[in-house]
Design a protein around this nucleic acid. Structure first.
Lengths: 366, 366
DNA sequence: ATTTAGCACTCTCATATCTCGAGTGCTAAT
DNA sequence: ATTAGCACTCGAGATATGAGAGTGCTAAAT
């Protein structure tokens, strides 16, 4: 029984205690709740009073447990699907469990090595690396995994390169302080010989180098354009291209893996599952949800806590990895509310830590 | 009744005709088959002899139809789910229908304009463009849509650029004749001042410029490395990076949209649906499947014809778009075998044509 | 005050039985 | 070659039934 050791109890606040409750019955109620939740997470079946007292350390009769269960039901921590069934946790129950009762189940050495080994290879290319990490996370947890590429609100433009590719086209390459390179083709109004390019390159870099990505707003571009005078017509296509490229570089990309795992959740009927999958395909909504918190430890959002009707029967666990000074990215899993939080939360934190470290290796030397 | 006009009949070969069959009964059997298939595609329910004869032009009794149906069943074009049910098409039935009976239902002017409008905006950036197109296709057909970025077996390396980004790192940029730009960070053993870079750039371009992507095999790199003598140690990291970048540029990317549509298929039970979704997440397998044929018109693969047990109850329709001289890409949909082929096939061809045209616009001017 | 035994009660699940109707295949007549 | 007539089959849905799990309550015991 991994969850309930003396230490946890000693320091857990007596939230359950109402007038007239003894410390003993207090402890027992917490144990009962934890047991119900863990049983349910494991088997997916409601638990009855009989099975429950087998799992308790002190021998008590089912009737006693039933009283506790009745109380827990009244308080909204558990409920029963129907009269003659056992109890299952409510979302409030899960919340209490995660906050107060659960003991994290850290990864074993073996698991850590496995992850390290799998990710070690792929760490060169940031995009592929995250894809691999995501797939691995999805595989190990049996859930859908989501991650974002690193984003940095303070990210600056390091340099902008121009290279002629055709008679009237140039390749635009924007380098940012997050180690990102974004390229884009741009069609000019004039022929782009080397001299013109050189002038444009200098011009563009004078304007943009060192600026923070978020500064580059349409208004900023507009101001620039005005100040250019005669040159405006020639430079404008370039300005627009730079703007669009930067806009693309500023918001982070989204990676999804293991979506099919969602279909293996029995308590999610196909219609709900479809709604969840549909939700996942709306990148912006998902990004909003992921960027809710900046906590550095994994946080669980249970059912309605996600604030999305589609996810009422799903839980998300989100963790954050750091990259460099200000860069952050998200890694998360999505699954049924009935997931093994003790395990999953640790997994996410470990993944976040590892991803952060591995990506930073590439990054440091600049 | 869009499918069966005189013209189709006149030229459709009398494959059904066995000894003793009249031309009349021949025609009727084909009509019956087509009707059964179209009914089934529309309603998803088996069709009985009674309903069938309402749909036929000549008035015949249900009993006559029943004889025809018995024959069609014997020949394996249709079957009955159980004794007291009507008939549903078999995969062989669909195949015959698509090849001989079906009349393509071309897109209306409105639909064409709608597609043109939606895609018109996004045509700048190839990746985003395809994503939009895919999403639109998924949306309009209600199926899962798949596409690949253009690939070109004859694609050549146009140029390779090197730019210093850090003290010992350079950015490698490979431009290909398909209009693709792939960048990658590369760590050198030596400090990379401008002179070194210039030498390396010349060296690399001498070796690689103009070569066909597929030439760049590990063996080729090996040969190069040997011929370099003293320089090997310095240049090797660069060679490796070039090789990996090119490998990444050579195989096309895969885009998926509308996966959640697969869950709306009632005749696909959740377990099968999961298998299909899982299959979709294996990029390589999917790529293999997509590149089966190089036909320039949309081709349908019905159920087992896909050669994949996971897809036994699914159909794929694949079309090819052309880009430039040798560039091709795929666009496809995946859904239940019970899909509206007459509509979907035309859709795919129209999408392929439009995508090809729009991408080529960007491309031509080089 | 808390715990426990005993018991009546409720509700689901699985199984069995029944009927209804749709759709068929066959036969004999046209 | 077509059709009417008819007996037959089978699945879907409604209804009944029993077993079992689990409860809440009451009254007794600690």
């Amino acid at each position: 029984m991994r969850v309930l050791n003396k230490a946890t109890f000693a320091c857990s606040p007596r939230l359950f205690l109402k007038r007239g409750g003894s410390v003993n019955s207090e402890d027992r109620k917490q144990r009962v709740l934890a047991l119900i939740i863990e049983q349910y997470i494991q088997t997916g079946e409601p638990t009855g009073s009989k099975k429950l007292c087998e799992g308790l350390p002190q021998a008590v009769s089912p009737a006693t447990i039933r009283n506790d269960m009745a109380w827990l039901t009244d308080m909204g921590y558990i409920n029963q699907p129907h009269t003659s069934a056992g109890r299952v946790p409510t979302q409030k129950g899960y919340r209490y469990y995660i906050d107060r009762l659960m003991q994290r189940q850290e990864l074993s050495r073996d698991e850590q090595n496995y992850i390290g080994g799998m990710l070690g290879h792929a760490s060169q290319n940031p995009e592929h690396f995250l894809e691999t990490a995501c797939a691995l996370l999805a595989d190990m947890t049996g859930l859908a995994a989501i991650s974002t590429t690193p984003s940095d609100k303070q990210a600056k433009i390091l340099r902008i390169e121009l290279m002629p590719t055709g008679i009237k086209t140039v390749l635009l390459l924007v380098m940012t302080s997050t180690g990102l390179f974004k390229s884009r083709l741009c069609r000019l109004e004039v022929e782009a010989n080397y001299e013109v390019i050189a002038i444009l390159r200098k011009l563009i870099n004078d304007y943009f180098t060192g600026r923070i990505l978020r500064e580059i707003t349409p208004a900023f571009i507009q101001t620039l354009a005005v100040s250019l005078g005669d040159m405006t017509l020639i430079v404008m296509p370039l300005l627009v291209a730079v703007h669009e490229t930067i806009r693309g570089a500023a918001d982070s990309q989204l990676l999804l893996e293991g979506q099919s795992n969602l279909l293996a959740i029995p308590e999610l009927d196909p219609i709900e599952a479809k709604a969840v999958l549909e939700f996942l395909s709306h990148r912006e909504k998902l990004l909003t949800l992921l960027s809710r918190d900046e906590k550095h430890s994994a946080a669980a959002y249970i059912g309605k806590e996600n604030g999305r009707p589609e996810l009422n029967a799903s839980s998300m666990v989100i963790s954050t990895y750091k990259l460099g000074e200000n860069g952050i990215g998200k890694i998360a899993v999505l699954g049924s509310t009935r997931m093994d939080y003790a395990k999953i939360i640790s997994h996410l934190d470990y993944f976040a830590k590892t991803i952060g470290e591995m990506l930073s290796q590439n990054f440091e030397e600049e």
